[in-house]
Simulated scan of single mutants.
Amino acid sequence: MKTYDYLLEHGIKPSMQRIAIMDYLISRKDHPSIDAIHMALNKKLPTLSKTTVYNTLKLFVENRAALMLTIEEKNTCFDGDTSLHSHFLCKKCGKILDMPFYGDKIENLTYVNGFLIDEIHHYYKGICPSCEGKKI
Score class of each variant (00 low, 15 high):
residue 76 T to P: 06
residue 76 T to N: 12
residue 76 T to K: 11
residue 77 C to Y: 08
residue 77 C to S: 14
residue 77 C to I: 12
residue 77 C to K: 13
residue 77 C to W: 05
residue 77 C to A: 12
residue 78 F to E: 05
residue 78 F to W: 06
residue 78 F to C: 03
residue 78 F to I: 07
residue 78 F to T: 04
residue 79 D to A: 06
residue 79 D to F: 08
residue 79 D to T: 09
residue 79 D to L: 07
residue 80 G to M: 09
residue 80 G to V: 10
residue 81 D to Y: 09
residue 81 D to P: 02
residue 81 D to R: 04
residue 82 T to K: 04
residue 82 T to N: 07
residue 82 T to I: 15
residue 82 T to F: 11
residue 82 T to H: 06
residue 82 T to L: 09
residue 82 T to Q: 06
residue 83 S to M: 08
residue 83 S to Q: 11
residue 83 S to I: 09
residue 83 S to Y: 13
residue 84 L to Q: 09
residue 84 L to P: 01
residue 84 L to G: 00
residue 84 L to C: 02
residue 85 H to R: 10
residue 85 H to Q: 09
residue 86 S to F: 06
residue 86 S to W: 05
residue 86 S to N: 02
residue 86 S to T: 04
residue 86 S to D: 05
residue 86 S to Q: 03
residue 86 S to R: 01
residue 87 H to P: 03
residue 87 H to A: 03
residue 87 H to K: 05
residue 87 H to W: 12
residue 88 F to T: 02
residue 88 F to S: 01
residue 88 F to K: 00
residue 88 F to W: 03
residue 89 L to Y: 07
residue 89 L to T: 03
residue 89 L to Q: 01
residue 90 C to Q: 02
residue 90 C to R: 00
residue 90 C to W: 04
residue 90 C to A: 06
residue 90 C to T: 05
residue 91 K to E: 13
residue 91 K to F: 07
residue 91 K to P: 01
residue 91 K to M: 12
residue 91 K to Q: 13
residue 91 K to R: 12
residue 91 K to T: 11
residue 92 K to G: 00
residue 92 K to W: 02
residue 92 K to T: 11
residue 92 K to Y: 02
residue 92 K to V: 14
residue 93 C to S: 00
residue 93 C to R: 00
residue 93 C to F: 00
residue 94 G to E: 08
residue 94 G to C: 09
residue 94 G to H: 07
residue 94 G to T: 09
residue 95 K to M: 11
residue 95 K to W: 05
residue 95 K to Y: 06
residue 95 K to A: 15
residue 96 I to S: 00
residue 96 I to M: 01
residue 96 I to P: 01
residue 96 I to N: 00
residue 96 I to R: 01
residue 97 L to E: 13
residue 97 L to R: 08
residue 97 L to I: 14
residue 98 D to P: 07
residue 98 D to N: 14
residue 99 M to H: 10
residue 99 M to L: 12
residue 99 M to P: 00
residue 99 M to C: 10
residue 99 M to S: 05
residue 100 P to G: 10
residue 100 P to Y: 14
residue 100 P to C: 08
residue 100 P to N: 13
residue 101 F to S: 03
residue 101 F to W: 10
residue 102 Y to T: 15
residue 102 Y to R: 15
residue 103 G to V: 09
residue 103 G to R: 02
residue 103 G to W: 07
residue 103 G to D: 07
residue 103 G to T: 08
residue 103 G to H: 05
residue 103 G to M: 07
residue 103 G to A: 05
residue 104 D to N: 14
residue 104 D to L: 15
residue 104 D to W: 13
residue 104 D to K: 15
residue 105 K to G: 07
residue 106 I to G: 05
residue 106 I to W: 06
residue 106 I to Y: 07
residue 106 I to P: 04
residue 107 E to M: 11
residue 107 E to T: 10
residue 107 E to R: 06
residue 107 E to W: 06
residue 107 E to Q: 11
residue 108 N to M: 13
residue 108 N to I: 13
residue 108 N to P: 13
residue 108 N to W: 11
residue 108 N to F: 12
